[in-house]
């Protein structure tokens, strides 16, 4: 089986400071991988390098494209990479307002990606937007309201709908449940799990919340000071951590 994403030797320096160093992994279709580590461990740098938001100093990010098979996205032209960013890839930001157009209605937010890939039938766009609002549990009656009138959890669900409407194959998520109430988090996690399963999505989720990765991720990478210190099956890494840092991380979680 061809990996959907194959990363080799990915390295990013900020001057003398290491952002992430020599990261390598293969992600297969349908797999959800979590990246955990404390603030400053390089997990967001890694995610942004993978998603093409930052240019790494070295390495390869090979994506199995629909048309031409595996290609190094770092060597793609910018139009190709941006096209990937609005078709097969999606990026869910921690803060919904970074991923939404706050001055555009909920329907327009969901419809934008469709229009960006050439949809030109208003009725079709609207019915797809309505369908997706339903799938992320937003009342269809809110379709013409602006996201600024939505609660934090609704904004985050709208951002997810906006990202998934074009049926991407790989979703990058940066702390998708950060900043939300615990009750809202649970609902969002359940929603994400269902969507990942039903759409066969692959996902890379950056978070510092170990409970989130236990519920969402099949496998886990633990980062410290820009390096991957441990990787493996999520429950194995959390229940039988091998590296000193992972043991510290797991034992530091407060039990409720």
């Amino acid at each position: 089986m061809t990996p959907l994403l194959s990363v080799q030797g990915l390295t990013k320096h900020y001057g003398a400071h290491v952002g992430c160093a020599d990261v390598a992994f293969d992600l297969y279709p349908g797999e959800v991988m979590g990246i955990v580590g404390e603030s400053g461990s390089g997990k967001s740098t890694l995610l942004n390098c993978l998603a093409g938001h930052l240019t790494p100093d070295a390495g390869a990010v090979v994506f199995d494209t629909r048309a031409e098979g595996p290609r190094d996205t770092l060597k793609m032209s910018e139009p190709e990479r941006r096209m990937l960013g609005r078709t097969d890839w999606a990026f869910v930001h921690q803060h919904a307002r970074d991923g939404l157009r706050m001055g555009v209605s909920a329907g327009g937010n969901v419809g934008e990606r469709l229009m960006a890939v050439g949809a030109r039938h208003y009725g079709d766009i609207r019915s797809q937007a309505t369908d997706w609002l339903g799938r992320v549990e937003i009342d269809a009656g809110r379709i013409d309201d602006r996201p600024s009138t939505f609660s934090g959890g609704m904004q985050q669900r709208l951002q997810i709908a906006r990202n998934l409407v074009t049926g991407p194959r790989l979703v990058f998520m940066d702390e998708p449940t950060g900043g939300l109430d615990v009750s809202v988090q649970a609902r969002l996690l359940d929603l994400l799990r269902g969507l990942v399963r039903d759409m066969g999505l692959s996902a890379i989720i950056v978070t510092h919340d170990l409970a989130v990765v236990r519920l969402l991720a099949d496998r886990l990478m633990v980062m410290k000071s820009g390096h991957v210190v441990e990787a493996g099956l999520t429950d194995q890494v959390l229940d039988d951590p091998q590296h000193a840092y992972t043991q510290l991380l797991v034992s530091s979680v407060l039990q409720v």
Binding site: E78, P79, R82, R86, R101, V104, S105, G107, G108, G111, E112, R113, L114, M115, A116, V117, R120, Y122, I125, R126, I143, D144
Partner: peptide
């Protein structure tokens, strides 16, 4: 530069929806 004009239609979409 990249002919990414989906956003222009978002404006027209907003017009019709409103």
């Amino acid at each position: 530069e990249l002919e990414e004009y989906g956003l222009m239609h978002v404006k027209l979409y907003e017009d019709i929806s409103r």
